[in-house]
């Protein structure tokens, strides 16, 4: 008893770490290991062939393109929404602030059918776009709309705390030195927000790449045209083509790994103390 207190160590190290490792091993490591085993049992050329079939390549182009475009939309509007929520006071601000997390809380299938209904040619919004010749539902644009919805909270939530902690003296100094308000925003405020906004962009991109539920209802799902990569994996699994599904999933895992590395680099670059 006294020995433990003198060492200053808390009890439960072995138990808590043991439970954690066992749980992670059973739920995460063993399943991931089966992917490695499955991959190792296939010749490399075969994996390459499966992962780069014309249909797979078309799905990567659509998925990566739509996810990048959606993340870019969220980059611009995310900074804007964060700014409005942090700096302006208006009735209902708290409700709007809470609502930003909706894409995290709303099941993706519900988001999918709701967006499809709204953006369909006879839907609340689609109805107004149809005469202009803009079709969203059941086209690649539908994928962009769904991924914009799914990625919406990331940039807002990464930028908001930085904006709240921003030293008012920075902006005051710029104003005192004769900078107009717009110049101050562009030259002083935006550069301060850039690392957080970039982190939010990458998070939204990563989420968009793997998204399934919200997209399939609005995308049309035509092979080579409006079929996302996650759906193609699903199709392969339904055909019991495990090798084909694994090969395409490897491309996904590689992309997530690269994005994780980017995130780590961004986190290191914007660590407090480095700049201030």
């Amino acid at each position: 008893m006294t020995g433990r207190a003198e060492r200053g160590a808390l009890p439960g190290f072995g138990l808590s770490l043991g439970v954690t490792l066992l749980y992670l091993a059973l739920l995460v490591l063993v399943p991931l290991a089966t992917v490695v085993l499955r991959t190792a049992s296939l010749p490399l050329e075969r994996i390459w062939e499966l992962a780069t079939s014309a249909r797979a390549l078309a799905s990567y182009r659509l998925t990566f393109g739509a996810a990048a475009l959606a993340a870019a939309i969220n980059l611009v509007f995310g900074v804007l929404v964060a700014w409005v929520l942090e700096r302006y006071r208006f009735p209902g601000r708290r409700v709007v602030d809470a609502l930003v997390d909706l894409p995290f809380a709303l099941p993706t299938a519900v988001a999918g059918i709701a967006l499809a209904a709204v953006y369909a040619p006879n839907g609340w919004i689609g109805r107004w776009l149809e005469p202009l010749g803009v079709k969203i539902a059941y086209t690649p644009l539908g994928v962009v709309v769904a991924l914009t919805f799914i990625g919406l909270p990331f940039v807002v939530r990464t930028v908001q705390p930085v904006l709240a902690d921003l030293d008012p003296a920075l902006e005051e100094a710029a104003a005192t030195l004769g900078a107009g308000r717009l110049a101050t925003l562009r030259r002083v405020v935006l550069p301060e927000l850039a690392p957080a906004a970039a982190t939010g962009f990458v998070l939204a991109l990563a989420r968009g790449l793997g998204e399934y539920g919200s997209v399939i209802f609005i995308a049309g799902n035509l092979p080579m045209k409006s079929e996302i990569t996650a759906l193609l994996i699903m199709v392969r699994l339904e055909e019991y083509d495990y090798a084909g599904a694994t090969a395409i999933a490897l491309v996904f895992l590689a992309a997530s790994f690269l994005l994780l590395l980017t995130l780590n680099r961004l986190a290191r670059g914007s660590r407090p103390g480095a700049a201030r």
């Binding site: 995460v28 992917v35 993706t108 793997g210 399934y212 994996i233 699903m234 699994l237 495990y242 895992l253």
Partner: peptide, 28 residues
């Protein structure tokens, strides 16, 4: 260990499901 705990967030839900199909499926 922390990275491993976060890992499920960066795996596509479809791939997450696929992991268990590869493990427990008919040809798993």
């Amino acid at each position: 260990l922390v990275t491993l705990i976060d890992l499920p967030f960066s795996v596509s839900p479809v791939v997450a499901g696929m992991l268990f199909v590869l493990l427990f499926g008919a040809q798993g």
